[in-house]
Amino acid sequence: MPDTPTAHRPLLSASGLSLERGGRELFSALSFEVLPGHLLQIEGANGAGKTSLIRILAGLSRYGFTGSVTRHAPLLYLGHQAGVKALLTPRENLAWHVGGEGDYDDERIRDALARVGLYGYENVPSHALSAGQHRRVNLARLYLSESPLWLLDEPFTAIDRSGVLDLENLLVEHVERGGAVVMTSHQALQVTYEVRFLSLLEGLRL
């Protein structure tokens, strides 16, 4: 973690988060902070409330829970759905993305697509791509993004083994640059970086 004054300012802080769904308490009084350099993995079984938590952190869920979330930095959220339009090419999907994060020229987009293994597919209609390739088009946004905080919901779904390896390296690069990642996954990350775990029942643990 770089030793700068901003290194200890949280990118995201959550306090006292509680959520109840269908009469069942998913988590209660969950408080934590995400600092630059944190690689945080949310743990929990299927239906434990991981996706609900990450949607609350992103600001997509605004009702039905108690507690508060403060976001101090721009964030990039990648959810279950790829958000890739079948009628647009991968290049158009990224250049005209509704996320409106930045202006990307063709070269940057080509580079980003090459990094996710879609070199040569820039101008192929996306309906000709497989589900895994759709996910990869979406992951290319991580290479373009300048948001310090990434919220990733199951980023490894439908990604092949080499893609998972690339993605793990990218996540480490990002946190080493002073960004932060909050992610859900059932796989253990194979990285040589300190991964923090957030258990929905027990809270933050190392």
Binding site: G59, L60, G79, Q81, G83, H97, V98
Partner: peptide, 22 residues
């Protein structure tokens, strides 16, 4: 509808741009 189904709508809502004009 199609933006809702493929997740683009979530991204639009999280975008730093004013939703009124989008």
């Amino acid at each position: 509808r199609s933006d809702f189904e493929d997740g683009s709508l979530e991204q639009l809502l999280l975008s730093p741009q004013p939703l009124f004009l989008s």
